[in-house]
């Protein structure tokens, strides 16, 4: 796993929460894909609003996204973004057969993709719940084909109400050689950020 980076302006060790979440999701997705996919926490980013889109892979072509909302006491969004090749390869791995373009997908292909979001979201949020000491529950995954910048923009909106800087976590999923490259974003709301920050303070105090 690569060493994640985080904003130099932040002294908060966000990785203490996001690393275990990524590890947990990696193990779960590894089982789901028979070891064909692994994850690495790429970056916990605290950035200005105008730089949000720069966190996405280059280009502004439409992508397939699996969006998992966080429900419970606090909320947030998990957004998995797949380019066309990656989403096709992933479904092929899961169904053990080649698949056509997204327009030809049936219930089975959509279900495989939704389940990937479900497994990723559940494992990620379970680990995060343990760190935060609160139950964070995944909502049913929603699959959309749209512009990733638009979705990420909407996800950071609640933080933008409070600040010109927004925080999100970027995770890279890779597998099948280089054929599958997926970028996942976890975007907490202001309330969840406060909860996570508090839990890190508590952990820090307990460790002293």
């Amino acid at each position: 796993m690569n060493s994640p980076t985080s904003s130099a302006s932040s002294c908060i060790p966000w990785e203490r929460i996001f690393e275990p979440a990524t590890q947990s999701a990696s193990v779960a997705l590894g089982k789901w894909t028979r070891g064909r996919i692994s994850l690495s926490l790429d970056e916990v980013r605290e950035t200005s609003l105008d730089e949000v889109a720069a966190s996405l892979p280059p280009g502004d072509e439409p992508v397939t996204m699996v969006i998992v909302g966080v429900s419970g006491e606090v909320s947030g969004q998990l957004i998995l973004t797949f380019d066309d090749r990656s989403v096709g390869e992933l479904i092929a791995v899961l169904l053990n057969r080649q698949v056509g373009p997204s327009e030809t997908w049936g219930e089975l292909e959509m279900s495989a993709l939704a389940e990937t979001g479900n497994i990723f979201g559940s494992a990620y949020l379970n680990a995060m719940s343990q760190c935060a000491g609160r139950r964070l529950l995944p909502s049913p995954p929603v699959i959309v084909r749209d512009y990733a910048a638009g979705a990420l923009e909407q996800a950071v909106m609640m933080q933008a109400l409070d600040s010109d800087e927004v925080l999100f976590c970027r995770t890279c999923l890779a597998g099948s050689g280089n054929a599958i490259n997926v970028t996942a974003f976890f975007v907490p709301t202001v309330e969840m950020l406060a909860l996570l920050r508090d839990s890190l303070s508590d952990a820090h105090l307990a460790a002293r």
């Binding site: 105008d50 949000v52 889109a53 979705a151």
Partner: peptide, 24 residues
């Protein structure tokens, strides 16, 4: 010119301004 969240661009002849919008 790609116009990010919260940004403003002034464009003239032979130029274009682009953006991707969600709820903005």
């Amino acid at each position: 010119t790609n116009v990010g969240m919260g940004q403003i661009a002034v464009v003239g002849r032979d130029q274009v301004a682009r953006s991707v919008l969600g709820s903005c």
